[in-house]
Design a protein around this nucleic acid. Structure first.
Ligand SMILES: [Zn+2]
Ligand SMILES: [Zn+2]
Ligand SMILES: [Zn+2]
Ligand SMILES: [Zn+2]
Lengths: 169, 169
DNA sequence: ATCTCAGTCGTTATAATATAACTAAAGGCG
DNA sequence: CGCCTTTAGTTATATTATAACGACTGAGAT
């Protein structure tokens, strides 16, 4: 599930991932939270994966760098990363992806967001979008019945643009 | 997790549930699918529960009526009921609820629908709604990036109306 | 009537995901 | 340093879900 583009034992990540990890480190500094080595490795492994990474996939890869890693090692790191908003959990897949918004956008760090996820059943890729129309519709539908929404899971399964092209050839 | 309003060993369900089971049986007849005794029991147990029922909760209760029920017994019944659209799986809870639309509405049986679920973090109740604004927003957001949506998981966690009242007293 | 095939179910074992509980080490701070 | 909080190691276990295989059942076909 995780791609294997590791270069060295000591610094396994691609330049892109390293840049994102630097952003994550800076972000954690501003929040006075600690991106420890284990947490950084877990985030890096998630960012390297082109598909959502399962906890035990992450564990397998983590063990290349920390021999004695165990399930709690990974789940604690995941809990931390979720709490910081650096990753998302995809419920339908029991798997985790990096937050595109937190690490990739140019709106500045720390702004909250309400994301939706488009899951391609062809290639398994998941893309994160932030559509205000969906968010508003959810808020308004909730209000209609007196429900006070706090957190949403929006996961849309279907076929991504590139898989549609691949099919039509 | 399941309420215990069973009346007799042989016919454990409330009048309301019995009526819904009758509808389910009629619905299955129209589709030439078989609502067997085990499947009927599992659906009944789900309908009796005021909260989403986990597979192993269902199993515990099912064993009162079928001593040798095992996990596959329940999961097979759940697979069938999901395929018929008689229940939904709530991903965030790994649990199952009856489909309000299929069994309760007056639009006639067999019409598909795109439901959303409001999960109360106070009382654990889940209500199913069908909001076209949300559905349209999802379709339109998907189209914007060339994604072809097929199936959505929309789960909104928050506080239901009655829990809000309870808090404010 | 019996054959056969698909669908259903019983049974056992195991896979996959996640957490509890306790101990030890590490880091911030007076 | 000594104290306290956070983080991590370790073992065991809980929770959710499926694989695999054989037996039974019931509806048509021969
Ligand atoms: Zn995000
Ligand atoms: Zn795709
Ligand atoms: Zn429904
Ligand atoms: Zn409530």
């Amino acid at each position: 599930m995780l791609s294997s583009t590791a270069t060295t034992e000591l610094d396994p990540f691609s330049p892109r991932t390293l840049a994102l990890l630097d952003r994550a480190a800076a972000f954690c500094t501003t929040r006075a939270s600690r991106l420890t080595e284990t947490r950084r490795l877990v985030l890096g492994l998630i960012l390297e994966s082109r598909k959502p990474a399962g906890a035990y996939d992450i564990l397998d890869h983590l063990r290349q760098y920390q021999r004695n890693a165990a399930p709690p090692t990974v789940y604690r790191a995941l809990d931390f990363l979720l709490a910081q908003g650096l990753i998302h959990r995809i419920e339908r897949m029991s798997a985790f992806i990096g937050c595109a918004h937190r690490l990739d956008c140019h709106h500045g760090n720390g702004c909250g967001h309400r994301a939706q996820f488009l899951i391609c059943s062809g290639c398994g890729a998941v893309s994160e979008v932030e559509d205000s129309e969906i968010s508003h519709a959810i808020t308004s539908a909730s209000r209609k019945i007196g429900f006070k929404p706090q957190q949403s899971t929006i996961e849309i399964e279907g076929i991504c643009a590139s898989c549609q092209q691949a099919d039509s050839t």
